[in-house]
Nucleic acid binder design. Structure first.
Lengths: 257, 257
DNA sequence: GCAAAAGTGTTGTAGCTACACCCATGG
DNA sequence: CCATGGGTGTAGCTACAACACTTTTGC
C-alpha cells in the first residue's frame, strides 16, 4: 500500500505515453454455391492479402466507420455488422506491410513517427448477401475478391487470427440466433439453409431433424413456388417471416436457467 | 463505380482526421452477503461516481493495461478479466467531468486541444473474490467503494450504459460457462452459489433442481466440512474441481445443433 | 416441538436423435 | 425405372420443471 502511494506520487503522467492509433478490420462473410466465402483485398506493393479495414473519423462511432468502409468495398448500405473483439497486442502492427501502400496512396500524417506507433484494431464481422456485393479495392489494394473460407492462405499482420475469432463468434451466435437471414437471398430452400449451417459449424446435420427444428421456430414462410430446373424432386422455396424472426432474435433461442 | 474513383482521387487523406484517444473502463463484480456489488470511484472535483479505468501504454495490450489498472484499484494480480464491448459514440466524452481532476492531478498533455478529442473506450468486466479486494482510489478520485448493484445511481459519462452491457454479457456467459469460481471464496455452500446465480439472472431458481443440475456438471467437490454456526441444518461446503471446471469451460455447457 | 433450511426422490412433459417410409423428378 | 434428394412420421431417450417427502438444526 505504501509502495502504491509512493509510485503514485513519483509518476508524472504524460499523455504522450498513451498515444495509440485505432483502426478497424472487417470479416465479411458471404455464401455462394454452398460455400462460405470471405471478402479479402490484395495489397499493392506486397501482394499480400488482407481484410478490408480503415480508420475512424473524429465524428464517427466505430460502427458508423465500419459501415462506411464496407459501403465502399461492397456498395451495400445497411449491412448486418457486429463488433466482436479488440486486437491490441503491441507487436501486432510492427513492420506494417501496408505502410508503403499508404505512402504510395498519398496519405499524409502529422509527424514522421506516426507509423511507428502501434495500431489497436476493432474487429467487426459482417453478413452479406453474396449476389448483392460489388467488390471494390481501396486505395492501398489492387484487388478485392471473395475467397472460399477453406482456401484462405496467409493474411497480412494478425488478420488470420482476426478471421479465426470472427468464425468462433459466428458459431456461438448461430446457436443463439437464427442467422441466415443476412447471408441468403430472399427466397431459398431448406437444403440451402442447412448447408449454410453445416458450413459454419463445420459438421453435417440430419436433414430431417434440421427441417423440423428450424420450422418449429416459426420464423420461415413457405412459398407456393418451388425451385425449378434442379435434378430430382423440386424443393419448396421459403422466405424469412420478419416479424417472428425479430421476436426470436429478442428472446434468444436456447439456454434456460 | 466512377463516382467512387472520382471521390478517391479528390480526397486527400490526412491522418490528423483520424486521431482519437483510447481508454478502458472496468466493471468489477464482487459478491458479498448474497448481493452482487460493483467497484466504483468518486471523482474529486465533481463527486460523481465512475467506473475504474485508465489508458493503455504503447507497449501494452488492452488486457495488460486493464490488469495493471485493476491491480492498482484492488491489489489483486491474476484477475479474471474479459473485454466485452467498445464504446465509441462520438458524443460520449463531450464535457468530460474528469478533465478538471486530471489537471488537478498534474496530468500533462501534448497539445491544448488534447482533451477536446473524443475518447473511445474498451469495456472490460472482471470477477473477483470480494474479501480479497482492498479498494484504492486513483489520482482523480478520493473514494473507491463497493456498491450494491441495485443501489448504483447515476455514473459519469456513459458508464451506466457500460455497466448495463457488462451485466448482459455476464448473463449470456452464465448460460454457457460455470461462472462462480472467480466470485466465490474457496469454500462455499450450494445455497450461496445459487444466490449468486439468482442475483445475476435477476430471478429465483428452484433450489432442488439447481442443486442436481450444477452437481451433474461434475465441477464441484463436496467437502467433509459443513458450515458451522448458521441457523437450521448445517449445509455441506463445496469447492470447485479445477480440472473438470476447465474441461467444462472448454466444451461449453449448452446449445447443441 | 416447530420453523426453516438441507438433502433426496419421483413423475410428467418437451425436445431431441435416429431412424423408416413414401413422393417427385431427371437422367 | 432407378438413383437421388424432398417431405412426413414415429419410437426411444434425455433433460428438465414441478412437485412430495425426509432430515437436521437453532430457538
Amino acid at each position: 500500500m505504501e509502495a502504491e502511494q509512493a509510485s503514485n506520487e513519483k509518476r508524472i503522467i504524460t499523455m504522450k505515453d498513451f498515444l495509440s492509433h485505432i483502426s478497424l478490420d472487417c470479416v465479411v462473410f458471404g455464401f455462394h454455391s454452398n460455400q462460405l466465402k470471405v471478402l479479402v483485398l490484395q495489397m499493392k506493393t506486397t501482394s499480400t492479402w488482407a481484410l478490408p479495414g480503415g480508420f475512424v473519423y473524429e465524428d464517427e462511432s466505430m460502427e458508423v466507420a465500419a459501415s462506411r468502409v464496407l459501403k465502399e468495398r461492397t456498395g451495400l448500405n445497411e449491412i448486418f455488422l457486429h463488433q466482436f473483439h479488440v486486437f491490441s497486442d503491441p507487436q501486432r502492427s510492427k513492420q506494417n506491410p501496408a505502410v508503403p501502400d499508404m505512402i504510395l496512396a498519398g496519405v499524409t500524417f502529422p509527424e514522421k513517427s506516426w507509423f511507428e506507433k502501434r495500431f489497436i484494431s476493432v474487429g467487426f464481422y459482417a453478413l452479406v448477401e453474396f449476389s448483392q456485393v460489388n467488390p471494390q479495392p481501396d486505395e492501398l489494394s489492387d484487388a478485392c475478391e471473395w475467397i472460399n473460407l477453406e482456401n484462405i492462405g496467409i493474411l497480412m499482420l494478425d488478420h488470420n487470427e482476426i478471421l479465426q475469432k470472427a468464425l468462433e463468434t459466428l458459431r456461438m451466435q448461430l446457436t443463439f440466433q437464427p442467422i441466415g437471414y443476412n447471408l441468403l437471398p430472399e427466397k431459398f430452400t431448406l437444403s440451402e439453409l442447412r448447408k449454410l449451417y453445416e458450413t459454419i459449424l463445420g459438421k453435417e446435420l440430419d436433414r430431417r431433424n434440421f427441417q423440423r427444428k428450424i420450422l418449429a421456430y416459426d420464423i420461415l414462410t413457405r412459398l407456393e413456388e418451388v425451385r425449378q430446373g434442379v435434378a430430382h424432386k423440386a424443393p419448396a422455396l421459403y422466405k424469412f417471416n420478419l416479424v417472428n424472426y425479430k421476436r426470436a432474435l429478442d428472446e434468444g433461442l436456447q439456454g434456460r436457467w
